[in-house]
Design a binder for these strands. Structure first.
Lengths: 216, 216
DNA sequence: GTCCTGTTCAAACGTTCGTTTGAAATAAGC
DNA sequence: GCTTATTTCAAACGAACGTTTGAACAGGAC
């Protein structure tokens, strides 16, 4: 029983460091201090290991998101949750993983997987885990931003998820972009800043077109 | 001479489809219709091929960004380019690659590389290509948003780049998020929407803290 | 024609990978 | 305490990988 979690911890760390493809099962088992065959015995295959690594973290995060959303909607009138609160509910459980000792490196795994969504097994894994969360939050955003046309809302949520994924994946890029004058912000700061940034973006007036085409 | 570009085209397409690690040189050379050894002959190694694939597209994009920024700054008073114009200059050359026949798949390569920034050879490659662009645009953003503290500005630019990278990498996620009710937007529409969204986000009032901590 | 330079080719090299195997070790059931 | 079932282990398997090699081929220069 201990072997399984040892493998999961090692795999999580190594996947985060080097990516899924670049991490060999030999490296995982060596880092975990177990036999090479243990991965195939406990998880069936390397893909099965990836699935288990993800499920262990995503499940609780999405459960917390849903619970908080349920609570906020039940307290609100007409189930309309204010935008800032909605964003915080969506972002905080995910970004706060970085502070828990075990979940530190998982953020990078998730961010990385987001970038591999087009590979079939990864895509299926992600969509299965996030289908209900997506549905519930899109609905909630729609309720709190009723003036926004649906296609605009969807694209803007896509931008939001991009910022979130990018921040989860490579927060160190902030350091580089500041010319090494900043250190990596704490997750709470990132959430606060992203909530303010995305709330303003989501509330922006809907664009009138042709502003871009005319510059060509 | 033809062999080189045939390899570059094939590699670009396959890297975009499957990622760098998952693409074998045998697949590249088969797709290009050339001999396996041609890659090592013309590009030295698989990493060299990746570098060449990137350089071929990033160079012109960044050149165009710089040229447009130069032009806009010279026309503006005190070199202060309006925020919307600045965003458009930054985003359009990158996102418009998707419309050119040859560059279609390169967006995914770039987006993917953004997610692999922590692997040393990739990081070095990206930072070298983007160092001057980063510097110039951070300065330009700072001039047009002088009221924003530097650490806030940097983090918000990071959010912007996340939205851009995510949009370049997996625009099809928009289709999924809409429940297959939308089709993939054209690049011009994406730029217009992202400009409006990011401009509002960048202009948002600076956050007063403790709004998040208090909810724990 | 002869040399020289640049390019292509089939074949192989050595490594590393994910996975499998069958026996040894450990734990559990009764 | 013998018999199950479960878990570990060393070793190997076959496949796929990036890279190298050395011969074959091309086409100008002179």
């Amino acid at each position: 029983m201990d072997t399984k979690t040892q493998i999961l911890d090692a795999a999580e760390a190594l996947f985060a460091e080097q990516g899924f493809d670049a991490t060999s099962l030999r490296a995982v088992t060596a880092c975990a201090g177990v036999n090479l065959a243990a991965v195939n015995y406990h998880f069936g295959s390397k893909d099965g290991l990836l699935q288990a690594v993800c499920a262990r973290r995503i499940g609780p995060v999405n459960d917390e998101r849903m619970a908080r959303l349920d609570e906020a909607e039940s307290q609100a009138t007409d189930r309309v949750v204010p935008l800032d609160r909605l964003l915080e509910i969506f972002l905080l459980p995910a970004l706060r993983l970085g502070h828990e000792s075990q979940g530190t490196s998982f953020l990078r795994v998730m961010g990385r997987l987001h970038g591999e969504m087009d590979r079939d097994h990864v895509r299926g894994l992600i969509e299965a885990q996030f289908a209900t969360v997506k549905h519930r939050f899109v609905e909630a955003f729609r309720r709190t931003l009723p003036e926004l046309p649906d296609n605009v809302l969807i694209v803007r949520i896509h931008f939001l998820i991009g910022s979130m994924a990018h921040t989860m994946m490579c927060p160190s890029e902030i350091v580089w972009m500041s010319g090494n004058k900043m250190s990596e912000p704490r997750p709470e700061e990132l959430v606060t800043r992203l909530v303010a940034y995305a709330a303003a973006g989501l509330r922006a007036p809907v664009e009138t077109f042709e502003t871009v085409e005319s510059t060509r």
